[in-house]
């Protein structure tokens, strides 16, 4: 009885549906919906399965120190300020700093770099910064300190040059 009652209701419904154009549509949709239950989902089960990624995806920037000529052009053109060079005050050696969380992957540094292959855009996607990375404090402080270290080094060098000029014998 429990099985036949919904079925008979469905049959009566189906007979009525024939009389009305719109209800035919409703019946069609009903069977389509049943059919859709057995179809594969259109979505990707994301963390379990990978999403679509082209092979020339714009990913993180890779730096090759051996090729760098320290012209600092990449730092000048970078729109968000994700590249900065700091300078050692004693020997004047420059260090490259890059923040993958600030980078917008625009490739502007790669285009402007005069040495082929020094800066390369890899296909490795960047990851969002979390609380531990503390981008605002850590990166912004590093950026400001790096600029300051260059100013200090320049001032130091100028002082030494002035001293050498004033006392050429020593």
């Amino acid at each position: 009885m429990q099985v036949y009652l919904p079925l008979s209701v469905l049959m009566i419904r189906a007979c009525h549906a024939l009389q009305d154009k719109f209800q035919i549509e409703i019946m069609k949709t009903f069977f389509k919906t049943i059919g859709n239950l057995f179809k594969k989902p259109a979505t990707i089960p994301f963390p379990a399965a990978p999403t679509y990624k082209p092979d020339d995806y714009r990913g993180l920037i890779v730096f090759d120190e051996s090729l760098c000529i320290w012209c600092r052009r990449c730092e000048t053109v970078c729109p968000p300020g994700a590249i900065v060079f700091s300078q050692n005050i004693t020997d004047g050696k420059q260090t490259y700093h890059y923040s993958p969380y600030v980078c917008i992957y625009c490739q502007e540094c790669v285009r402007t770099c005069p040495k082929q292959g020094c800066l390369i855009q890899s296909a490795e996607p960047g990851h969002p910064a979390t609380k531990e990375h503390d981008v605002n404090n850590v990166w912004n402080k590093l950026f400001a300190d790096s600029l300051e270290s260059r100013v200090t080094y320049a001032a130091e060098k100028k002082k030494q040059q002035a001293a050498a000029k004033a006392n050429p014998q020593s």
Binding site: Y52, D56, Y57, R58, I104, Y105, C106, E108, R111
Partner: peptide, 20 residues
Amino acid sequence: EAVCGNRIQYDFSIIGGVAR
């Protein structure tokens, strides 16, 4: 994403032409 390398915010046009 395949043409520009980014899914949104394509950065495709730059001054003087296109990036890719």
